Amino acid sequence: MSLFSEASWVSLPRRSVVAGRDSAVLGEFLRPEVGLLLWDRPLPAPLRRGAREMLQAGARLEAEGEPTALLDSLLAQAPLPQAWLAELGGLALLLAGFAGRPQLRARLEAPCPEPAPAFRDSGPGLTLLCTYRGPATQWLAPGPPEATGAEIRQAATGSVLLLRGAWKLRPPPSPALSASPGSPPRLLLRLETLP
């Protein structure tokens, strides 16, 4: 009986991280070696205001399907302003285009803060993350295979993260939860491809 499969001996190619402020950086995700793309864009004022209002209303939206059906389902759950419809629709079309398949799952929610969150795998397919309010997602930067400690990086609020394959992600650690009434809650969009 073998403890290791042949596949366990194959070394995977190192995935690269690409970042940029201009939307032209999105084209880099077409390169198969790019595993994480960070589009460091400014968050438009209507989305900033809308994020605050959605959090106050306790919004938790979830849907599956092709981008148009997904948007219709989200709209049936809560009235979304035009700026949010354009944002969610545009990002859903972007991810579906990169994936080459239109079936997506969307979740827009305020995840509960964790005092010491663990890094979790992003999933095997393509994932898009965007934090609209509060501290954004952290990830472990790839390093040389012999490195023992990986560098922790964090996206800015409003930035779009595109992920290919499993990445170690976590929400930022929350200071003592009872002692941080001034820290804003997070509003996070997670779009992912369905098998």
Results as ranks from 00 to 15, higher is better:
P145T: 08
Q77L: 07
A118H: 01
G149A: 14
A51S: 10
A59R: 02
L43K: 05
G89I: 06
A86S: 10
Q103P: 01
G149D: 07
Q77C: 05
L88D: 12
Q82Y: 05
E28G: 04
D72H: 15
W139E: 12
D72S: 11
R105S: 14
I152L: 01
T127A: 10
R49E: 15
G123S: 03
A147Q: 15
E33A: 14
R153H: 04
L140I: 05
T68I: 07
E64L: 04
C130E: 12
A76T: 06
P144W: 15
L126H: 14
F98W: 03
L47P: 07
P46W: 05
E28Y: 10
A51Y: 08
A63T: 14
L128R: 04
L61R: 13
A63N: 07
P124N: 02
L108E: 03
E64Q: 05
G143T: 01
P115E: 15
R52P: 04
Y132L: 12
P115K: 01
A51I: 00
C112H: 06
L61I: 15
P111T: 09
P124W: 15
L38H: 08
G149I: 07
G143P: 03
A106I: 08
L70P: 02
L55F: 11
R60G: 12
G100E: 11
L91I: 02
G90H: 00
W39C: 07
P44N: 10
L140Q: 09
F119L: 03
A59D: 04
A150R: 15
Q56E: 11
R41S: 14
P46E: 02
G134K: 00
P144S: 09
A51W: 05
L55K: 09
E87N: 12
L126T: 03
R153G: 02
P135I: 07
P79K: 13
R153V: 00
C130N: 15
A136T: 03
P67D: 06
L93E: 09
L47R: 08
L37R: 00
G97V: 04
V34C: 00
P42W: 04
D121Y: 11
L104N: 08
P46V: 12
G89D: 03
A141E: 04
L47W: 04
A96C: 04
L93I: 07
Q138A: 07
G65E: 02
G35D: 01
D40W: 06
G149L: 06
L61N: 11
R107Y: 08
L61H: 14
L126P: 01
A76I: 11
D40Q: 13
G65C: 03
P124A: 11
L94S: 01
G134Y: 02
L129G: 08
A96S: 00
A51M: 06
L126C: 11
F119S: 04
A116H: 11
G123E: 12
M54F: 12
D72Y: 03
E64D: 11
F119T: 08
R52G: 14
L43T: 01
Q154H: 00
A69C: 06
Q77P: 07
A59P: 00
G123H: 05
R133G: 15
G50C: 06
L71G: 00
V34A: 00
A99Y: 07
E87R: 10
R101V: 11
A51P: 00
G35I: 10
W84D: 09
I152F: 05
A110H: 10
P135T: 14
T137V: 07
L129D: 02
F29G: 06
Q103R: 09
G125D: 06
P32H: 01
T68Y: 09
L70Y: 04
P44D: 12
D40L: 13
E109I: 10
